[in-house]
Amino acid sequence: MRLCIRFLFSSLLLTLLVWSSGIFAEGLGPSDYDRSSWHPIHYKPVIDNAIDEQCLSCHRDILDRKVLDQSPAGVKSSEVMAWYQTLTTYEGEQETFHRRHLTTSLAKELMDMKCNTCHQGNDLREEATIPPDHSNRDTTLRKSVNPEICLMCHGANPYKRMGLPKPWVESRDMFQGDCLLCHAHIRTVRHQVNFLKADAIEEAAKKDPDVCYGCHGGRQWYRISYPYPRHAWRGMSNVIPDWAKDRPTESEARFQIKTKQAAK
């Protein structure tokens, strides 16, 4: 049923696309390149309402691209596996970064990411020269995505705040490597953002603790943790610990789930 609705929805989007993408015409030349590059869709506020199909009408290759069959030195893609890929949740062939986040089966099962979930306007000048935003506030000296967005999932476990004696690597045996040993009771209102499927994640995690580890530990990129908003959970203490006093109780507005359906 849900699938069906989604299918309907995306065909609706496709129809919209035909209407709304006047700039993305056939036979584009160098002249159009500049104009397209600086099209308002690449910047706020328009990018906030950009739909994936609009983005993909020019950047389709981001999903079409496959990894090389073998590296220049002859390393076959099918024969390598990074440590995190040994998790049971990792299936299928080597895939590109974008496909792992958007199109592979696990991604589709647990997430609902959009292009603009991460991409909030790639300032051309950032990689070339000067940011056009003279207030000079919202740019990071990086190519396209602010890594704070990545940090939401791919940060470290703040083991001290979690009350663990040692970092998770060393403590995990104590907890049988199972996050839900504690988190069936603590901070149970989680993943309440519009780019994740909270219910599906909970279901999957019950079956296999690797699911948690797949994003939060296994693919941990960064050495700090994300200061998550404190969604109240059943049984949460009324006393707010010092470290959490500034924390918001809701996610950033653009990630909030508009209908309350999912929370149920």
Binding site: F24, P30, S31, Y33, D34, S36, H59, R60, D61, D64
Partner: peptide
């Protein structure tokens, strides 16, 4: 029409270019 005068498209990130 504007032409940049070098092969700018070689650095494009969009498949259409």
């Amino acid at each position: 029409e504007h032409r940049p005068g070098w092969d700018k498209l070689a650095t494009s990130r969009a498949h259409v270019f």
